[in-house]
Nucleic acid binder design. Structure first.
Ligand SMILES: [Mn+2]
Ligand SMILES: [Mn+2]
Ligand SMILES: [Zn+2]
Ligand SMILES: [Zn+2]
Lengths: 147, 147
DNA sequence: CAACTTATTGCAACCAATTGCAATAAGGCT
DNA sequence: AGCCTTATTGCAATTGGTTGCAATAAGTTG
């Protein structure tokens, strides 16, 4: 268990935010998801536990958790996807042909991070970068994009 | 003039697509924009030339031009931004604190592109990558995200 | 534990974007 | 130039997500 509930609570309180049952449920839904989840999937999971929670709260809370950097967001094909901010960072290679999403090692981008840091004095978020392109199967020829 | 209209036409025709006044106007609107533009800005510009053109066509055509790789898309802060696919590729550093968007040289990512190509047999789109993070001004402390 | 402040929520109105469908028109072929 | 096929468009309905606002309740203070 990398991020105990107490950690979550103190992290919120230290910045004047509050710990609510809604936030706990939404955080848990993302935490216990197998992989990246859509807002709709989060809503479904949360709704099962407590049908009174509104969609607006789902969207607002997912945004909020992103800003808190407790979850990561990924936009692809007109859809947002969320994932718990894991202990070990990773990046993604997203194929615009078939949509397949491969994980890749974080150290791969370290060189870029360092150069940008020095050259532009800009700190890249190096915990969850998505790079788009074509996978080995799709690069044969100009396939139509999945979405 | 890097991409003459005739080039545009043949590119469409060669794949069974058609050249319409709508597509030309939308393409021009993106081409002549100073920088990245939103669908709404494109709509405004096009609407000035021809008020009959619907919003649906704007959205559909921007998607279409992306798939044709004639324009580039960038998603940030819940908004899509479009830009002409220029002769010379470039990347962006987008600050999640203040929203400032810096251009950076394309060769910066070449190492990553090469490694990923070899290791994952995955071809990264290296003409327009956006990397998110914090600019020199915003990395002082935990500032609230702009959006 | 009661009173208080204000962050957070649910609701409903709202807005941007997508979609089904029938009308239109681009481009190919005589 | 006229005819034909079907890609593309405009329209209207719909969806998915956002926002203003009043009600609620988390956390603080005494
Ligand atoms: Mn991930
Ligand atoms: Mn750009
Ligand atoms: Zn693929
Ligand atoms: Zn900044």
């Amino acid at each position: 268990m990398a991020r105990p509930a107490t950690d979550f609570a103190t992290r919120l309180h230290s910045q004047g935010f509050r710990l609510t049952p809604q936030r706990q449920l939404i955080m848990d839904a993302v935490r216990h998801a197998a992989r990246h989840v859509t807002p709709d999937e989060v809503y479904a999971a949360v709704h099962r536990q407590n049908p009174a929670i509104s969609r607006a709260t789902i969207y607002r809370t997912l945004d909020f958790l992103c800003e808190m950097r407790l979850i990561h967001a990924l936009y692809w094909g007109g859809q947002m996807y969320y994932e718990i901010a894991a202990e070990q960072p990773h990046h993604h290679l997203v194929c615009r042909g078939c949509g397949v999403m491969v994980e890749c090692a974080p150290d791969l981008l370290q060189i870029v991070v360092d150069v940008v840091e020095k050259k532009h004095r800009f700190t890249i978020d190096m915990d969850h970068v998505a790079l788009f392109g074509l996978c080995r199967h799709c690069r044969g020829q100009g396939k139509k994009s999945k979405k």
